[in-house]
Amino acid sequence: MQLTTLRQSQIRARLASACALALLLPLQAYAEKKSNKDLALIDQCSSHYQAAERDSLKLINDKLLFLEGPTWSVTDQAFYFSEMNFSGSQLNGPDANIYQYKLNDKPTLWLAHSGSNGLLAEGDDLYVLKHSDRSVSRINLSTQKQTVVVNQFNGKPFNSPNDISRHSNGGIYFSDPDWQLSERKNELNSTSVFWLPAQGTLVEIDQLNKPNGIVLSPDEKWLYVGDYSNHIYRYPVNDDGSVGQRQPFIDVDGPDGITIDCAGNLYVASHSQGKLQIYSPEGLLYQSITVAPQITNMDFGGKDMKTLLITTGNGLFTLQTKMAGIAR
């Protein structure tokens, strides 16, 4: 009887191990495909959601202005984020600065008058979505040399590029609402989501009502996009990074920035409610955490990728999580 029980225990253990391995294999394959250590500690990823520690929410700074676009740089072991000033001239959108924040230190000004909103660190570069010149640009982290990646579609300028996500093949997805267009003309007569292959022509994925947050799933099978109509949509992603037809996913009150953890759980900034909403890959609401009014965005960072930097219109915060994040 004892021997039978032991064997049953061994079988159960092997089955559990096999299931865990099956869940992790797509992520491991993704990590190998990326060949980047700045993704996440994939081998520490749990398929079961572990709640973020509400009591770990910490105010880092409340002296800056309206904050947006956080990203983690593995190269510099630091976060970068944008600050926008809506009280001055809005001729080319709000004046903006980029700050650097190293954990356990104070945010420091990194680049003044950057004209930026969303940011994405990748290797030695920082992708910058700029409302000032209506471009997606790239800035070298060492020299601060700027290069325009793309600034128009069909010969017409973008509105005010907002948020970005990157495919492992080097292509980028980005949203182009008109939040910081100011009095400039919307020459596209739309607000859209775009896909720029590493080698190829810019593609308009979809036209939405002021699309905002955008993120790719860890296995690169789904692209998630939020818009002003309180919807978050998902799009099936092909092996080459191209995208299929829009599918309804979840509704969120005033969705702003979106990020994702290694298990594919979505972290959504509900701008209207001042809350961080966390959803399963199936759209189940796992957790809702009140942060601050006008929460805008968040991104994972730190050595274990379990520190969430949260930007708002009223301060900069960190939150400790038990799930590791991945590079966007």
Rank of each mutant, 00 (worst) to 15 (best):
S168N: 06
Q180A: 15
H167Q: 11
P211N: 02
D125V: 12
V128G: 12
N230P: 01
S192I: 09
Y233Q: 04
V128S: 15
D178H: 12
W179M: 14
V128L: 09
D206S: 15
S242A: 11
D124H: 13
I214H: 03
N162W: 10
N154Y: 10
R184E: 02
V148D: 01
N140C: 13
L126W: 04
S175A: 13
K156G: 02
D178K: 11
V128P: 08
V150G: 07
F194R: 02
V128F: 10
D133E: 14
I205M: 05
W222Y: 11
V215T: 14
D240R: 12
A198M: 07
D227N: 15
N140W: 00
Y228W: 15
N238C: 04
V136P: 14
G226Q: 01
D227I: 04
L126G: 09
N212M: 07
A198N: 11
T191G: 01
K221A: 07
L208C: 05
P218H: 10
G170T: 15
L223R: 00
K185L: 12
P197N: 03
Q146C: 02
D178Q: 14
V193M: 05
I205E: 01
G213L: 05
W195A: 03
W195H: 14
L223N: 00
S160Y: 03
E204L: 12
P177W: 06
H131M: 11
I172R: 02
L223A: 06
Q144P: 02
F153T: 10
S175G: 06
S242E: 04
S182K: 05
Q144W: 01
D125H: 11
D227W: 02
N230Y: 08
L181N: 03
P197Y: 05
P211K: 08
T143V: 07
R134D: 00
Q247A: 05
L129R: 09
F174G: 03
F153V: 06
V225Q: 00
H131L: 12
G200I: 04
I164G: 07
R184K: 14
S192A: 15
K145N: 14
K145C: 04
D125Y: 14
Y235P: 01
H231T: 12
F153I: 11
P197Q: 11
N162L: 07
L196E: 12
S217N: 08
V203S: 11
P161N: 10
Y224I: 12
K210F: 03
Y173N: 13
K130N: 13
N169Q: 12
N154S: 13
D227L: 08
G155C: 07
G155K: 09
Y235V: 00
L141T: 12
F194W: 03
S132C: 08
D239C: 08
D206P: 08
N189L: 11
T201N: 10
Q199R: 08
E220M: 04
Q146G: 00
T191S: 15
S242H: 10
N189F: 09
Y224N: 01
